[in-house]
């Protein structure tokens, strides 16, 4: 596949919820294309029958007991919020979707 053609920067910006300035876009497009072109050397590798590796050291059933800890001062976890009211975090109006 030809990465330069397949990179839809605007679509990526929507998925990543990230606005880029026109200058940033101009720079980023070719850079991404080059990096993607570079990583495409993986196409050379035969991975038939190879399991994907999701964890560096695989384990299973890392589970915790269903025990509730006592509640602490909630304010300390809200203190970093840029805006809050009545112990809730304020965001600009959100259209239900």
């Amino acid at each position: 596949m030809n990465p330069e053609q397949s990179i839809d920067l605007d679509r990526l910006c929507v998925l990543a919820r990230l606005s880029l300035t026109p200058e940033e876009k101009e720079k980023l497009g070719p850079q991404l294309a080059r990096i993607i072109g570079y990583v495409e050397q993986l196409n050379e590798v035969d991975v038939d029958g190879i399991e994907p590796m999701a964890h560096a050291i695989p384990m299973e059933n890392v589970l915790r007991k269903d025990e509730a800890t006592p509640l602490v001062d909630r304010e300390k976890y809200l203190k970093n919020a840029p805006a809050s009211r009545a112990s809730q975090v304020v965001v600009p109006p959100v259209i239900e979707g």
């Binding site: 009211r85 009545a86 809730q88 975090v89 304020v90 965001v91 600009p92 109006p93 959100v94 239900e96």
Partner: peptide, 13 residues
Amino acid sequence: KLTHFEQDSLVDY
């Protein structure tokens, strides 16, 4: 949970 108001919305986690 989001609660919507005229000017903003509030989030309760």
